[in-house]
Each structure stands twice: as structure tokens, then as C-alpha cells.
Nucleic acid binder design. Structure first.
Length: 838
RNA sequence: GCCGAAAUGGUGGAACAGGUAGACACAAGGGACUUAAAAUCCCUUGUCCGUAAGGACGUGCGGGUUCGAUUCCCGCUUUCGGCACCA
């Protein structure tokens, strides 16, 4: 048995930090701006399942980084809190009648306890939870500012509706078009909703990405989501109708090839363009489309559907009469909800044209037969009147000028980004602080009356009308108009979970402020967030919404930066091993036996299984519980293992055997203390290893390359095991290097070495560059690029000498004997390559 | 289908301004200690041929550039993540 008493050590130091408020931070004005850092974790939703091993990954990374920064003289803000409004607590309430607040607060207590057990250096005095009245008061306040700026509006939009449960469903609750709970086919129901005009900020959200220190892939995802495109809108006259059909296209150059048009089933002109003969078919088709979820529309992509409206439009450039179709491959939410179809040069249009026998006309010289497949590359225009002979980009320019001069179209910018549906028909969320007055219209709740608190309800069950359970409480709904004092009704929609997480990073700055969401001084002192770490699943929505709110707050003069999160790092997912049968189905871990090393069989059948990597899931029984890991190996081992597994940014599989290796490393460190510290000079060799270690750990920790920093510390420990005695001159700097990684153990070692706590406030060790350089290097001698000899030479030996020494090698002589030397390459301090022939 | 990321020993991963592939760790094998086991310490360990010295092959696959490619270029395959058929 080992004698590394992690349990005792970890309890001792966690109590010490708590008692001494070691990590409480203040806005000390004497610290210059460039010595202040705000390091933020994505706060968790406190689920009933407790902490998952994925949470500590990012939290450990930021904790190591923060402790490293403090030791390097920075004033570091590192807070934690809870994103505590959310669906699971409400669903649990519907099932059991337990108040979501009770469930949530119990879960928060559990989460906090679990997080604390990992020894993170949070300033807990700044903890916030989004469901508290003191917090959501300011969420409501921000909503009112959005409303007053015209950035919130009402509109009828569809929700997923389960006709059996009589309730709206989130996308997550819809599985394969069916209600997750009862299996009923989900339909769409139009409902009055509050919508935020995020599209008004589309350009700024796109432009300002350029100023951020985020990975290119995340920036690309956000940029694609915003989806700015420059094209043209074109008006097509409709035969026998007053109205024109407006389409948006990025390929106005292909207008001569437009052989039909398509409008989406939800398009406002559908009724008008449908001729009496087609009415039945069109209505049936629209009915079908309304039944389909977005998912089904997507899945049916391979097989295009549609129906002819009976009407025709006139192609404005060649006067051709072209049919107008109705099809759900055109979305009402993008562009104008109508397109001109150019089957020769667009794959989707080509598929549709083939299915319904519509003409395909080539207008760009194609390298394929457009009757056989679409040609979507560039080419020289043909069959295109005044565009003939031009390439794509020139033709687009020419056509757009033509359209504008004739006033039948104009250059238009379009975004994929849609406005943000901001209301939920739920109980457990921030009430939207608006009042509907029959005479004054929609009136905001006066700011001095915030927070507008959630009333207690008897039943959390849905109202049955699609509205929130709040509609069932007349005492709450019936109110007086803040303007005229007459009878009025409260808004019963609540806000989505995103709302609270849009600005929590600001509340940490000044969590107890009763007058404003955070003081100007605190914002000025800390913002922007220097490093934000969290899972890639929030790459688009959360980050885009938070950026949007931040920009609105900037326009209001409340925050001092255009962007909230200067640097963003997404941690990879922690996956698990799973076992797969030959038919690719997975087997739960407890059904598997390891018959021989790396040979796995299914217990029930004896079938040989392949080990694969899969997400942790309850059904596969491969979920790792952090509490159990901490109990068995300690928090320091858990932290170190999660960082040692691989690079922070990539996903990696959990292997408890790997954890035991890290545990062994910590145990080896502990057992070094069995020797007395010696004040003797350490050997030159050991000193060099130490300085190389300081250099590498310093560089790697700053770059969040924790896995390689840990390897280097392992190398130093291995060296110490080969040395007699434990020189203080090595040991003490090493404890300091360890401190961010294994904070509990490091505190204990620091105390054992005769120092007063806390090691976390000690300065980071410095290295001497000359001690990190070897004066003898191993020179590689290659013949035709293959290593044939190695020799030790002094660093800095000149090229000619290196070549002479290489040639003198017996092995090299053997290889080049009788051959012609064509060329020699000498890379000083690295290698010699002799190129021969014959 | 589109977008993004990736592919290196039995396993997790190192090394990329082009220069010794496999650091560190796990697993496996051998040895020491022990009455024994566990724990611990030491050694071996990419594959193949060879007693050895040594040699051949080797970073998903096929080409290319180069004295030299895990690293750069072209074309594929597979896996993972995201998605709103985005005109």
C-alpha cells in the first residue's frame, strides 16, 4: 500500500484556503491594467446527475492557468456560478410537484461541493445563480433596454406542438418527428412570441470576429452561421396578377437559364398564384409540409417534393413564360422565400427539374452535359444575350447593373442569421417584464419595480393552450397598467435559458450591486474577459447571443469594450471506450469481459468485440463519476490525469489505467520526502534538468499545453530517483512548478520543506538560459537520407569539421566506398547528409 | 448534402519556420524484494529478417516537390463534431 495521504492533505488545504480566503480578489488600483486578468469558465447547468468528468477538464485548465498567473504577479479574477434556470427542473416539477427552485438549489449545493472538492481557486464570494431574484432583476432590466431600443418585437411563429400532451416541445424533446414522452407525431402550432432583432447586429457580429483571439474554426462557424451573402433581388412579373414575385439570388448571371420558379409553402402569395384546378393539390401539399418537422424536411432532401401552382411568371431578361412551383426545399426564413430556379447550374434545382421534367438550359459553357448533371463551376456565358462571353463574376456585375438600370432588381445583402425567438411557454424562467393594456398597448414594467418575480403556482403542468403555466394564475396575470392605471394583463411568456448566460460574466464583477448590473469601475477594471474556456457545443448559439447583448450594452454605454471575450478556447470532449459487435451495435460495458489482453468478448454470447471510442452514456454504462475518482485517487490525481490525457482542445477517451499512472507519479513525488533535504550543491546534470524543466513548464503552461508540461515534470522526478539525496536547490523550485497542477500536494510539500503557507502566493521560479543548453550534441550522419551513424560533438562545431568527422566514421566509409559523392548537406548541430550515386 | 477538425506502436499521446519518428505514460514481458501476494524498484518493448553485428519496412491510402516529408502540394478513404437543402 502506498502512503500518499491525499485524502488528509486535500481536506487540510481546502479548509486552509477557505478559512484564509486565499483566492478572494479585489480591484486593487495599484495593479496596472496589463497585470490584471479575467479568466472565465462556462458556468454549468446544475443537473440532478451531478458533475460529469467533462466539467473538471475546462475548470482544471483555467485553474492551473490562474494559479500560474498569480505566481507571475497578476491580479486574477476567477469566478464560478450556476446557469440555474432550465428545462430539466421544470420537467421534474411536472412529474413530482417539487418546486423547481427546491430541486435547483439542492443541485447547486451538490455541484458546489463537488467543484470545491477539486481544489479550484475560485473567488467564491462572487458566486452567482441566474435563477435568484437579485440576478434576474438585471436580466429583466437588460430585456427592457432591448425593448426600448426596438430590438424586441412580437410575432406569430410556429413551435413544436404535441397534440396529445397539449404542450410545446423543445427541439430536444422531439425525437424523429415524435414527442419524446408519448410518441405522438409532432405538428407545428403558430403562437405569439417575443423575438429579438439580432439581425440588426449581423454586420457588427461578423466584422468584429476579426478582432478576436479565437480559433479560426470557431470563427468560421460563427461567420457561416451569420452567413452574409451579396447578391441581387429580382422582380418577376406574374401572368394575370398585379403582384410581382421577388426572389433573392447570388447568381444573377444565370438569369437567362431560369426555367421555372419555386416559392416556399409558407409564402404569402401562395394563395393568389394557385389556380382553381391546382387548389386541391396545393392545399394537400401545404398540409403535408406543415406536418413535417425541420428534421423531416432535411431528411427528405434526397427526394425533392413539390406541386405546380398553375401560374406563370415572366423572366424579365428574355420575356420567357416560366411555371411557378411550390416546394419545401425553399425556406420561407431565408431570402424572400422564393427563388428563380436555374437547373443547369444549381444541384438542388437540377434534381427538382429532373424529377418534374422541367427544362434545363445551359447558360455557362460547362465541362459536363447539363442534362446529365448540374455544372456549378465558373465558365463563359452562352445563351445569355448581353452576358455572352463573360465569366461568372463579370457577368454578375453586368447583370446587377442592368437590373438596377431597368428598376427590376437591385444589389442586396442577405444573412442566413435569423432573429432570435426569445420567449418560452414555461414556468421556470425569467418572466418577461411587460404588461398588455387595452388602451396603452404593450407597456414595460417600470424599472424600479424589478424584479418581476415568479409567482408560486399550484401546478407546473402546461396550460393546454400552448401558453405558459403562468396564465392559470389570475392574481398574477391581472394587473394594472403602469401608464394609465387601468386593468391590464401581464405577459406570461418567460425567457429562454440563454438569457441568464448572456451576461453572467458581468455580474461576477460586482455581484452584490443593488443599483446597477455592475459598477462602471468594476467593468473598467476587469473587462474584457482575457480567457474564456468551455465546450465546443456552445460554439455558435451561446457565444453569438452573448456577443449580441454585449454590443447592445456597449451602445447603451454600460460596458467599455465592443466584445466580451477576447480569447476563447474550446476544450475537447472526454469520451469513453465502448465495445462494438461485428454488426456495429454497441454493448454495455458491464456485459463485456476481457478474455485476454486487448481481447474483449460479450459475456452472454462469447462474441468477440472491438474496442471503440464513444460518448459516455448511461445506457453504455461507461460514465465516469468524479466523486468516485476523487475518493480513490484524490483530486490532485484527477486534475493531473485530465490534463495529461492529451491536448486540451481535442477529444480524448477516459482510461482509468492511465489515471493510475498519474497517481503513481504523485506517489513517487510524495515518497521523495522520505529523504532529508540536503543543502549540498546538486550535480550539474540535475541542475540542467531542473532548468530545462522550468523553461518547458513555463512555456507550456502559458500556452495551455499542460500534457507536455506534465511529461517534463515526470522526467525531472525520474531523474531525482536516480540521484542520491534530495537537494533543496532542486526540490523547492520543483514544488513551485507543481503548485498550479497539484495545489494540495504542493502546499503540503512546501510546508514540509519548512515554509509558511501558501505556496500559491510564491513567485514563479526563473530559469537560467545557459543551463537549458547542452554543450554536447548528438550529430546524425546520413547517407542518402538514411541514418548510418551518430557521434557526439561539441555544440557550435563548424561545418567543415562536422563533415570531416562524419567522413572519418568507419560505418560511413563502408557505405560510401566505391561510390561517387554527389553532394553533402551539413546542418550545424543537427546532421550531415552525404548523397552518393553508383 | 454542406461546413469544421482529425488519422502516428497493443493503448493515450510526443516531435511539425522540412532535419535522429515514437518523449512521457499505460498495457505487456523479464528481474529484484517478499514465506507468498499486493505495493515498490530496475530492465526490455514499432514491425519483420537475423544468434549477433546489422539490414529492410514504418506516421490512413495513391501521387508530387526535396539531399531529406509525420510536417509542404495534388487526389482519395475513413472517423469525429456542427448544421437551418441558405439559392
Amino acid at each position: 500500500m502506498s502512503n500518499y495521504p491525499f485524502d488528509e492533505i486535500e481536506k487540510k488545504w481546502q479548509a486552509y484556503w477557505e478559512e484564509h480566503k486565499t483566492f478572494a480578489v479585489t480591484e486593487d488600483p495599484s495593479v496596472p491594467k496589463d497585470k490584471r486578468k479575467y479568466v472565465l469558465d462556462m458556468f454549468p447547468y446544475p443537473s440532478g446527475a451531478g458533475l460529469h468528468v467533462g466539467h473538471p477538464e475546462g475548470y482544471t485548465a483555467t485553474d492551473i492557468y490562474c494559479r500560474f498567473l498569480r505566481m507571475n504577479g497578476y491580479n486574477v479574477l476567477h469566478p464560478m456560478g450556476f446557469d440555474s434556470f432550465g428545462l430539466p427542473a421544470e420537467n421534474y416539477a411536472i412529474k413530482t410537484g417539487t418546486h423547481p427552485r427546491a430541486t435547483t438549489e439542492k443541485n447547486i449545493d451538490n455541484f458546489r461541493k463537488q467543484i470545491k472538492r477539486l481544489g479550484f481557486s475560485y473567488d467564491w464570494s462572487r458566486e452567482v445563480s441566474t435563477h435568484t431574484e437579485q440576478y434576474y432583476r438585471w436580466t429583466q432590466w437588460i430585456f427592457l433596454q432591448l425593448y426600448k431600443r426596438g430590438l424586441a418585437y412580437e410575432s406569430e411563429t410556429p413551435i413544436n406542438w404535441c397534440p396529445n400532451c397539449l404542450t410545446g416541445l423543445s427541439n430536444e424533446e422531439v425525437k424523429e418527428g415524435k414527442c419524446e414522452r408519448c410518441g405522438t407525431h409532432v405538428t407545428r402550432k403558430n403562437i405569439r412570441q417575443w423575438i429579438l432583432r439580432i439581425t440588426a447586429y449581423a454586420d457588427r457580429l461578423l466584422e468584429d470576429l476579426g478582432t478576436l483571439d479565437w480559433s479560426d474554426s470557431i470563427k468560421a462557424m460563427q461567420s457561416n452561421w451569420i452567413g452574409k451573402s451579396e447578391g441581387a433581388s429580382v422582380l418577376f412579373k406574374l401572368e394575370n396578377l398585379e403582384e410581382s414575385l421577388e426572389v433573392y439570388t447570388t447568381r444573377s448571371d444565370t438569369l437567362f437559364g431560369a426555367t421555372y420558379m419555386v416559392v416556399s409553402p409558407e409564402h404569402p402569395l401562395v394563395k393568389k398564384i394557385t389556380t382553381p384546378e391546382q387548389r386541391n393539390a396545393v392545399e394537400a401539399y401545404i398540409g403535408e409540409a406543415a406536418h413535417k418537422s425541420d428534421l423531416e424536411r432535411t431528411d427528405l432532401a434526397k427526394d425533392k417534393t413539390g406541386v405546380f401552382s398553375g401560374s406563370y411568371a415572366i423572366n424579365p431578361v428574355n420575356g420567357e413564360r416560366i411555371p411557378v412551383w411550390i416546394a419545401d426545399y425553399v425556406l420561407i426564413s431565408y431570402g424572400t422565400g422564393a427563388i428563380m430556379a436555374v437547373p443547369a447550374h444549381d444541384t438542388r434545382d437540377w434534381e427538382f427539374a429532373k424529377k418534374f421534367n422541367l427544362p434545363i438550359v445551359e447558360v455557362l459553357k460547362s465541362e459536363v452535359d447539363v442534362q446529365q448533371q448540374a455544372w456549378t463551376e465558373d465558365g463563359i456565358h452562352v445563351n445569355s444575350g448581353f452576358l455572352d462571353g463573360l465569366n461568372k463574376s463579370d457577368a454578375i456585375e453586368a447583370m446587377n447593373s442592368f437590373l438596377e438600370s431597368r428598376q427590376i432588381g437591385k444589389r442586396t445583402v442577405n444573412y442566413k442569421l435569423r432573429d432570435w425567438i426569445f420567449s418560452r411557454q414555461r414556468y421556470w424562467g425569467e418572466p418577461i417584464p411587460l404588461v398588455h393594456c387595452p388602451s396603452c398597448g404593450t407597456v414595460p414594467v417600470p424599472e424600479d419595480q424589478l424584479p418581476l418575480t415568479l409567482p408560486e403556482v399550484e401546478s407546473y403542468a402546461p396550460s393546454g393552450t400552448g401558453e405558459s403555466p403562468l396564465v392559470t394564475i389570475p392574481e398574477w396575470v391581472d394587473t394594472s397598467c403602469p401608464v394609465c392605471g387601468g386593468k391590464a394583463k401581464r405577459e406570461t411568456n418567460t425567457m429562454p435559458q440563454w438569457a441568464g448566460s448572456c451576461w453572467y460574466y458581468l455580474r461576477y464583477l460586482d455581484p452584490d450591486n443593488d443599483c446597477e448590473l455592475a459598477s462602471k469601475e468594476a467593468i473598467e477594471y476587469w473587462m474584457p474577459v482575457d480567457l474564456y474556456v468551455g465546450g465546443a457545443e456552445h460554439a455558435v448559439l451561446h457565444l453569438l447571443y452573448a456577443r449580441f447583448w454585449h454590443k447592445v450594452l456597449y451602445d447603451l454605454g454600460i460596458v467599455n469594450t465592443v466584445e466580451p471575450f477576447q480569447r476563447l478556447v474550446n476544450q475537447g470532449m472526454i469520451t469513453s471506450f465502448a465495445f462494438q459487435r461485428a454488426d456495429k451495435t454497441l454493448v454495455a460495458t458491464d456485459e463485456v469481459e476481457e478474455a485476454a489482453p486487448d481481447t474483449f468478448i460479450e459475456k452472454a454470447t462469447g462474441e468477440r468485440l472491438e474496442r471503440v471510442i464513444a460518448k459516455m452514456s448511461k445506457s453504455l454504462k461507461n460514465v465516469i463519476n468524479p466523486d468516485e475518482i476523487i475518493a480513490e485517487y484524490g483530486a490532485d490525481a484527477m486534475r493531473t490525469y485530465e490534463m495529461f490525457m492529451g491536448p486540451l482542445q481535442v477529444s480524448k477517451p477516459w482510461a482509468t489505467t492511465g489515471l493510475s499512472g498519474v497517481y503513481r507519479f504523485l506517489d513517487r513525488i510524495w515518497r521523495l520526502t522520505e529523504q532529508n533535504l540536503s543543502d549540498a550543491e546538486p550535480s550539474e546534470e540535475l541542475l540542467k534538468t531542473l532548468h530545462k524543466t522550468i523553461k518547458k513548464v513555463t512555456k507550456d503552461t502559458g500556452n495551455l499545453d499542460f500534457n507536455t508540461a506534465i511529461s517534463q515534470m515526470m522526467i525531472l522526478v525520474n531523474e531525482l530517483y536516480k540521484t542520491d539525496g534530495l537537494p533543496r536547490a532542486i526540490w523547492e523550485p520543483f514544488i513551485l512548478l507543481l503548485a498550479p497542477y497539484v495545489p494540495h500536494l504542493a502546499e503540503e510539500l512546501w510546508e514540509l520543506a519548512g515554509h509558511a503557507p501558501s505556496v500559491s502566493t510564491q513567485p514563479w521560479p526563473a530559469y537560467r538560459e545557459e543551463l537549458t543548453i547542452d554543450d554536447e550534441i548528438e550529430l546524425v550522419v546520413q547517407v542518402n537520407g538514411k541514418v548510418r551513424a551518430k557521434l557526439n560533438v561539441r555544440k557550435g562545431t563548424d561545418k567543415e569539421q562536422l563533415l570531416d568527422m562524419s567522413m572519418a566514421q568507419e560505418r560511413i566509409q563502408e557505405w560510401i566506398a566505391g561510390k561517387t559523392i554527389i553532394k553533402t548537406i551539413v546542418v550545424p548541430d543537427k546532421l550531415v547528409n552525404i548523397v552518393i550515386k553508383g
